[in-house]
Write a protein that binds this DNA or RNA. Structure first.
Lengths: 253, 253
DNA sequence: CGCTTACTTGACATTGGTCAATTATGGTGG
DNA sequence: CCACCATAATTGACCAATGTCAAGTAAGCG
């Protein structure tokens, strides 16, 4: 509920050739032409502070981003202040694709930690579709994957009870974090508050707290100093009755 | 919860040149080359009965579909039988894109009414990306739109109460139905049972019934003979605190 | 030290769930 | 046309999960 909107454009940025995401086995690699295009597609880097809003629902952004480091989240709000967190954004994730395609952002994005993003020119997107079938395919794949994650969340919020939902969410975030660990920070902690958990799961903070306390007392997670660490993936998986999808090669741009 | 899996392939089908979807202003139209490709892309038509399952979670389908007429829905289930309906499928909607791209279906699809679908060859999808940037763009757009709808549903299930959720859902379906009215059936009724509403909103059938009764008593909807009709769009819109998106031109394949 | 933000906890209120019985409604075979 | 059956919708009584309120405590920071 912070109103802070903040961000600065770095003038000197990491060249795509040395993109930090390349190191990760989970990402597919580009061929020369693709890399060449992506280099031209990228027009800068954007740094935003923890708590700042990167994109706002209803805005028309000229940009598209890929997160290089840090954590963020997508959310929507109702007029009276109720907030629903839709999904989290981790390194390698694209930000603003929906808004770029449909003209207007249908959700907002906020930084959970300091974030560094690649900035792409919306204008060049048509060139991407015209000349790079493989990248076009990747974009569609990325959108389909987001859909698939939202399906899971909806299943969770609609059908699972508080304990199951919490177990699902933390396991989900933990798995995602592990896949890009070094880019997130040196440790494996999940940088969210209980308010974020509550707003993601559709629960009140109070009930969220009581539920998380149960997970702690069963030694499935730790929650210390505003950070959450997962201690027992299997335990969470059993409670949630959910197994994370097998990590196949995934694209990024 | 029916186990029926049923479908027959029609041998003689509507040629794309006379695609019934063309008549609708909401759909963008193809140029000659695109139409030519889509004709080759389409390999048949599939008819399925009410209640039959078209695609099953976990399956690897060789096909991709576009719904020509009828209603269906996408859903996921938990082991113990709890079911979450994720979204509804109306004429012009694509079925199975996520599964085609990611290899395995992450949800199932069931027919609410008899459905007629175009069948496309998954194999030819790479040709689509290679040679038809405009259609590739359309596919990405379609995926982004589905994401955007899921965002709305998640907001609803996570934050709105029973009455608000019901109002939102019925208004949502009503608007979608109106946009393709003639292909759905001659009337504007929504062909779902209260069990479907319950499984979409994450409520029990009993509570759903009590909630719908309120909407009926306020003259916002009618619910007769297993069919729902919306009587007061504005009334529903006010309760849900939601306005349907403005209908812009949308693609189909 | 005094803020501010996050987290905790208990008491109580309410929404929505469960159970169980009853009433439509539509389709079927005789 | 009727008896019968299955599915869907209704309703009331009672219960449980989760929300709200209020009053703490803990930790981080200028």
């Amino acid at each position: 509920m912070t109103g802070k909107t903040n961000g600065k454009v770095k003038t000197a940025w990491t060249p795509c050739t040395r993109c930090p995401l390349k190191k990760f086995e989970i990402f597919r690699s580009f061929d020369e032409k693709e890399l060449d295009f992506v280099k031209r597609f990228k027009t800068g880097e954007l740094i935003s502070d923890r708590g700042s809003t990167v994109l706002v629902e209803g805005s028309h952004s000229a940009h598209l981003y890929t997160l290089l480091s840090g954590w963020g989240f997508r959310y929507k709000m109702l007029d009276d202040g109720r907030r629903q967190i839709l999904n989290y954004v981790l390194p390698g994730d694209m930000i603003g694709l929906q808004g770029t395609l449909m003209g207007e952002m249908q959700h907002s994005i906020e930084a959970l930690t300091p974030m560094i993003m690649c900035v792409f020119e919306r204008e060049r997107l048509s060139e991407l579709f015209r000349s790079f079938p493989s990248l076009s395919y990747d974009l569609t794949w990325i959108a389909a994957r987001e859909e698939s994650i939202l399906d899971e969340h909806l299943l969770s919020v609609g059908q699972r009870n508080a304990l199951e939902r919490s177990a699902y969410l933390l396991l989900f975030l933990h798995k995602r974090a592990k896949a890009v660990r070094a880019l997130v920070s040196s440790n494996t902690a999940i940088p969210i508050t209980q308010q974020h958990v509550a707003d993601t799961l559709g629960l009140s903070v109070v009930h969220t707290n009581k539920t998380l306390r149960k997970l702690v007392s069963r030694d499935l997670i730790e929650w210390t100093g505003g950070q959450c660490k997962v201690r027992d993936e299997n335990g969470l998986s059993t409670i949630a009755n959910w197994a994370p999808p097998s990590t196949t090669d995934r694209p990024y741009i």
